[in-house]
Structure formats: C-alpha cells, structure tokens
Write a protein that binds this DNA or RNA. Structure first.
Lengths: 248, 248
DNA sequence: GTATTTTTGGTTTTTTTGACTATAATTAGG
DNA sequence: CCTAATTATAGTCAAAAAAACCAAAAATAC
C-alpha cells in the first residue's frame, strides 16, 4: 500500500498509475519416447513458495540485462543437458491475480509470464537432478494439477505442437536422429489423432518427396518384419519449406 | 546505476538482481480498402518523448489491475470506433535496450511490449482524431520508419496475417459485410502473392463449399459485367473449422 | 512348423487440381 | 447508337493426387 502505488489517487489530471512488473519465463518442453510411444512434457517440483511442492514448468524470473530468450535458455540449461534444441516463444500470460505473490507484495507488483515452447530428443536429453529437486517427464495426458496457471499454459503448448506438426517438419526435432517410418507415423497419430491417411499411403507419399534418407539399418521391435531406420535430410527438405506438409 | 541494481556484485550467494519492468501493449491493426485494393495498417503520431513526432502503433502502458488484453482494447477504443473486431496476441518483445527510457531511467527499469494483432473492416472503422494527434491508415508497403522496434513488430504482424489468411477464414473479418468474389480473390493475391489457382478455379471451388451466400445484389465497378455481392455464413462454415482452407 | 505381426511394395478407383474455352452483362469511346 | 474492351460467370477436360485396397516379405510367438 505504500510508495509509488499510492499515486493512483494523488492527482486526477495525471495518468492513472502504471503497474510494476516482474517478468518470468516458463518453458513447455515436449519430447516423445518412441519405445513407449508417449508424448511427454518436462515438469519440475517447486522448491519455494508460492506453490512449494507443486509440479510446474521450469521457469525463472528475468534478470537485469538479460533478454527473455536468454532467460529461457538459462533455466533450460539448468534442468537439462541436450545436444539439439528447438525453442520459440509461445504466449504471454499477464493478467492480474495470476500469481499469489502479487497479493502478498505490498508494492502491488504484478507477475507476468512469457512462456516458451521447446522440443528435445528424449534419448539425448539428460535431466539434471540436483539434490532434492524433483524433475521428471510426464505423459501429457497424465499431467497433474500444476502451480500457477501452468495447466492453461500446457493447453497452449499442446495446441502449438499440433499446429506445428501439421505445418512444419518439427517432428524431426523430437524424434531420434534415426527413426522408423512407424515411429514417425505413430507420433503423428498420437498428437494429431488418426484422422489422416493410412500407414501405407503415408509411407509412399513421404518417400516420394525424397527428404528421408534410408540408412539401410534394420531394427526389429517385437514381432513383425524389421523396419528400416531413416534420417531426415534438411537440405533435401529445403524446397518444401514454407509449403504445406502434403504427407499427413 | 544507483540503488538495487548494484546488488548484482554484492553477494555471490544470493540470486542476481531481477529486472523491474513496465509493460506496454501495442496494436498492429490491419484493414483492407476494397475500392483501392490496398492492405492498410493503422499508425498514430507519438505525442510524447521518446520518439515524439514519429509514427508508431497505437500503444499504452499497462495500468494497475488491468489485464494485457484490457489494455489492448482500451488503447484501441481510444483511437478507433468499430462494430466488429478481431484481436489476438501477437508476440512479446522484451530484450534490454529496446526502449530509450531504459537508459534515461536511473532505476534501470526495462520496457517490455506485448503486441496484439487486430483486424477491422475499413468502412466500419471510424478513426478518432483528437486535436493535434495524427492518426492514419498506411498501405503496409509504404510504412515509414517507426518509433521503437515497431518496424520489426510490423514484420511479425504481416507474417501472422499471411498465415492466418491461409489457415483460417479471417479474410471475412477485414472484408466488408458484403463483398464480391473479386474482392476476396484480390485480398488473397495482394497478401499472399499470386501463387495459387486462377480466378475461375478459385470461384468454383469456393462456391461448391457452400458457406458463401449469394445476396443476388449486383454491383458495377467500372467496366465489365456487374458482380454479385456475397455474405460469409459462419454457421455453414462450421464443418470446415480446423481444416485447411482448400480454396486458395 | 505354423500362425501372427509388422514392414514393404504395389494396384485401382475416386477426387481434386490446373489449364482452358465460351458466354453474359456491363462500360468506354467514337 | 454501335462496336470494342472489360469483367463476371459457367463449364469442360486432361493430369495429378488422394484414398481405398491388396499381397508378399521377414521377422517373432507359441
């Protein structure tokens, strides 16, 4: 109640009082486990109030001189070691009353969250469990009640994943370097539902485009004929950039 | 240089100093003038420092107790009277050094901008010119040097417009209530370029889908056979929601 | 050793696209 | 008033793509 926020009623001519913000960055990090065929998100257990002991997305407050993206990379690299990373801004949540600290803080400081959307390869991602802090991959359909408005952020992230999967080759950012065509097909079906072409047509259209390189390596997973491992060829994909993905 | 920002080197154990933010909202408002066949964006002349006298997007700083979207609607309704409005969040720009006030302010306050993307109907949009303030529609390809990083924001907005035109029926948010098929086709060509089907095929595929209602009203614009005015039928469009737009 | 499962490589039918032609209804200009 | 130019509209037809379907190969399961 003290300090600058009291200027609100001081003078009716001057503009109404501005809000003061702290800005946080939260990362929605997706991956897929091709062995179990599950879509995963990374959650961490909060170590501090508010929401101590609740699961949440890895986040941090932005420091002086630090850009939003820098903050996103910083918190990400504290939680996970990866070789490859896809990262883009997701959405900004900034309504009043989205953070309990606002009520507690006598200055009336607001807390705004700029969320980021990230994709990593499951096998290449090494989680950093520092002591007591919990960190774990959760199947997206089994995510518990999260801290803050993070369940809503997850909805945004999930929708973005669906859209990006349809319109750009991000599938190859979450799949392992080498993958079978079944892996790819199952990723699409689990995320997008099975409203598109059957496996056979999916295969033939995809291979005709010519940006998947057959390594010749065969892998056998349970029953059935062994599958070839494929590799995504980014150069060969270039002509299809900015065009709709025709194989789904 | 004074005050809290000096805590950075005070104690290596406590966390580094957080940035304090003011949060602004900037609206990128598009429209089309079907008579002139031009894509327009709304600019206002800045009345204050910094960048006094420069063109910029209508923006404001977020007030206490106000949500981001509320702020976007507030500044929009101060500049323009509209019956219909499409509005969604665009992107958040928050790097250090994006606002000259940061350097001037001894507290080291950061200025973050949450941009919003809006579409209005040209004929229904009444600009509010209050006294000396400049306000005008600019063709997007003739936008001058803008204040802050607003030229970059325009790029984001323009890209978003292209994407949304391809994947959702936002065309009918910028076109007049009643429009000819040429109006629609020309909107697509001016925004997307003419890399898609010719006018004849565009017409037949579009009409076959059945969500454009022919009012029977004929309008004559210069030479040539008069065209029918059509109306977008949102209910009839419902089945195509979330599906790719096949007529472009 | 036989059945089952999964990958792989096709064929055929249907639908959609793209290129093109023709006609109708207006204005422009002499 | 007559003719040419212009724009809207309607439709055909071949090529391409999509969807549905079929069958063999190569492994595991039992």
């Amino acid at each position: 109640m003290a300090g600058r926020s009291q200027r609100k009623t001081a003078d009716p001519v001057t503009s109404p009082p501005l809000a003061d913000f702290k800005v946080g960055v939260d990362n929605v990090i997706f991956s897929v486990d091709t062995a179990q065929n599950r879509l995963l998100v990374l959650l961490v257990m909060r170590q501090e109030d508010p929401f101590l002991g609740h699961w949440s997305f890895p986040g941090t407050l932005v420091q002086q001189g630090e850009s939003l993206e820098d903050a996103a990379y910083r918190i990400l690299s504290e939680k996970i070691r990866v070789r490859n990373l896809y990262l883009e801004q997701l959405y900004t949540f900034g309504g009043p009353d989205r953070d309990p600290r606002e009520a507690a803080d006598s200055y009336g400081v607001r807390y705004l969250s700029v969320s980021y959307f990230a994709l990593v390869r499951f096998a290449e991602a090494e989680l950093i469990a520092d002591g007591v802090s919990g960190i774990a991959w959760y199947p997206v359909d089994q995510v518990p009640q999260l801290a803050f408005d993070h369940n809503r952020i997850l909805e945004y992230g999930h929708r973005r994943l669906r859209n990006k999967l349809e319109y750009s080759p991000v599938a190859f950012e979450v799949l392992p370097e080498l993958f079978t065509l079944s892996d790819l097909y199952q990723l699409y079906t689990t995320v997008l539902g099975d409203g598109f072409s059957d496996y056979s047509n999916f295969r033939s259209r995809l291979l005709k485009l010519g940006f998947l390189e057959d390594t010749g390596i065969k892998v056998s997973r349970g029953a059935g004929r062994p599958a070839s491992l494929y590799r995504f060829d980014a150069e060969a994909f270039a002509p299809f950039k900015d065009k709709p993905l025709v194989f789904i």
